[in-house]
């Protein structure tokens, strides 16, 4: 992710092209293109950052606060924190600084600090982002941090993830290949097939996609992009090759609150911190479902 502004441009472009050809450019390719773009960007950015440091500016954070049992916090409010800016500071760094130096009751989930545990997806300046991999220098200041929308807030920036986990669990998110595969020997998988499922296996369960999805917001039973992607990961894995199993997986996906709910708005794909082409995967499963149903005609 280079900056907020190019990202929004990319979003506008991809939504426009999306209907025409969903697979024109994968998020991964986009990312690589962005990398080139960001190289020249970086020089300019370096300068800008040095200027910022020279000015010794403090970042202003506006943070959502709520605690169901503490007087004064029962009504949601925004608190302001002024955090000394340092080069390379992420939104998570800023939150930790505010907590450790000003207000120990400031509450948010975080752990690995390197975009793999998926704990710190939040709503930053109006978009779902992973705080640990979002640079403060790439955001417009003051930076507004809120809990993920469309989920119940437990406290401050912590949301209840249970519904997300329930949806993930509902698609039988586990390998159901041949239980009698010869022991002492691995199952074979082609490089192509591993590549086919690679992006889908990168999901870190951060919930950013689900939170960004309008459909999920309006239909609590909708499986949602992450769960469908999880099912995709197994459906497409050639090591799960029994026909019955494939049909079983499609039945789960095809139900009333499954793949057909997706209206290809691409919001999930845009916010995914792991660049998983979620919308594309959902579309592919729709095609698989159609193919499968035609078989019986």
């Amino acid at each position: 992710m280079s900056t907020q502004i190019p990202e929004q441009e990319a979003e506008a472009e991809s939504s426009a092209e999306a209907e025409a050809d969903a697979s024109a450019e994968s998020p991964q390719e986009k990312r690589m293109a962005k990398k080139a773009e960001s190289a020249s960007y970086r020089d300019a950015q370096k300068k800008a950052q040095e200027e910022i440091e020279a000015a010794e500016r403090a970042v202003q954070l506006k943070v959502f606060r709520y605690d169901p049992e503490v007087e004064g916090k029962q009504e949601p409010r925004f608190d302001e924190f002024h955090v000394p800016f340092t080069k390379g500071m992420t939104v998570l760094d800023a939150l930790m600084y505010a907590r450790d130096h000003y207000d120990p009751s400031l509450t948010f989930r975080h752990s690995c600090r390197q975009a793999v545990c998926g704990s710190d997806a939040m709503f930053v300046n109006g978009q779902q982002r992973l705080c640990c991999k979002t640079q403060m220098s790439e955001l417009e200041w003051p930076v507004r941090v809120e809990p993920l929308p469309h989920q119940d807030v437990v406290k401050d920036l912590v949301v209840d993830m249970q519904h997300f986990y329930d949806q993930m669990h509902s698609v039988e998110p586990y390998f159901q290949g041949d239980e009698n595969a010869p022991s002492g020997e691995e199952q074979k998988q082609t490089r192509e097939n591993r590549e086919k499922i690679k992006m889908s296996t990168r999901c870190i369960w951060c919930g950013a996609c689900m939170s960004s999805c309008n459909i999920a917001a309006g239909d609590n039973e909708y499986l949602g992009p992450a769960a469908i992607n999880k099912a995709y990961r197994f459906y497409m894995d050639e090591r799960e090759d029994q026909e019955e199993l494939e049909e079983h997986r499609l039945r789960i996906l095809e139900q009333e609150h499954g793949v057909w709910r997706c209206q290809t708005q691409f919001s999930c794909t845009e916010v995914c911190p792991k660049d998983i082409p979620l919308t594309e995967h959902i579309q592919e499963l729709k095609r698989e479902a159609v193919k499968n149903n035609l078989k019986f005609w």
């Binding site: 390998f175 022991s183 020997e185 691995e186 199952q187 998988q189 591993r194 090591r239």
Partner: peptide, 17 residues
């Protein structure tokens, strides 16, 4: 081998191992 049988997406050689 056990975790491969549980579906672990290991990187693969040309022969699928």
């Amino acid at each position: 081998i056990q975790i491969e049988h549980w579906g672990m997406p290991f990187s693969r050689e040309d022969d699928g191992t």
